[in-house]
Amino acid sequence: MPYFKLYYHFIWSTKDRQPFIDLVIEPEIYRAITAKAQDMEGFVHAIGGVEDHVHLAVSIPPKIAPATFIGEVKGNSSHFVNHVLKPDFEFYWQEEYGVLSFGEKNLSAVIRYIQNQKQHHADRTLIAEMERMDEM
Results as ranks from 00 to 15, higher is better:
22 D>E: 03
61 P>G: 11
102 F>W: 06
46 A>G: 05
46 A>I: 01
121 H>Q: 04
35 A>P: 00
94 Q>A: 12
15 K>M: 07
36 K>F: 05
134 D>M: 12
72 E>M: 10
29 I>G: 03
69 F>G: 05
17 R>W: 09
91 F>D: 11
110 V>L: 01
81 V>E: 06
131 E>F: 00
25 I>A: 08
99 V>Q: 07
16 D>N: 15
122 A>L: 11
67 A>G: 09
59 S>L: 04
123 D>G: 01
114 I>K: 07
128 A>C: 01
51 E>K: 13
30 Y>I: 02
126 L>A: 00
126 L>V: 02
34 T>L: 08
16 D>H: 12
128 A>S: 10
29 I>T: 04
101 S>M: 06
54 V>I: 15
16 D>A: 13
62 P>Q: 10
17 R>N: 10
124 R>C: 04
50 V>W: 05
127 I>G: 00
82 N>K: 05
110 V>G: 00
19 P>N: 11
39 D>Y: 12
93 W>R: 08
56 L>W: 04
100 L>D: 03
109 A>N: 08
97 Y>T: 07
112 R>S: 15
31 R>F: 01
30 Y>H: 14
20 F>L: 15
21 I>H: 03
112 R>I: 00
70 I>M: 06
36 K>M: 14
23 L>A: 13
38 Q>K: 15
115 Q>P: 00
42 G>Q: 05
48 G>H: 06
56 L>H: 08
92 Y>I: 00
61 P>S: 11
17 R>H: 10
54 V>M: 10
53 H>P: 00
91 F>Q: 13
78 S>F: 02
94 Q>K: 09
32 A>F: 00
47 I>T: 03
104 E>Y: 13
45 H>I: 00
90 E>G: 06
118 K>V: 07
128 A>N: 08
88 D>M: 08
26 E>Y: 05
52 D>K: 01
124 R>W: 01
32 A>S: 12
90 E>S: 13
120 H>C: 05
65 A>W: 01
15 K>F: 13
19 P>H: 09
82 N>F: 03
30 Y>K: 04
78 S>C: 09
22 D>Y: 02
79 H>R: 14
56 L>A: 07
35 A>Q: 15
83 H>Q: 12
112 R>F: 05
93 W>N: 09
133 M>D: 00
93 W>K: 09
107 L>T: 13
113 Y>H: 08
94 Q>M: 08
115 Q>N: 15
126 L>R: 07
103 G>L: 11
85 L>N: 01
55 H>G: 04
133 M>N: 02
49 G>L: 10
64 I>F: 07
131 E>W: 02
75 G>S: 10
92 Y>G: 04
117 Q>F: 02
39 D>K: 14
88 D>R: 14
20 F>Y: 14
88 D>G: 11
55 H>M: 10
47 I>P: 01
32 A>N: 03
15 K>G: 01
127 I>W: 04
55 H>N: 09
31 R>A: 11
65 A>L: 12
30 Y>Q: 07
14 T>V: 08
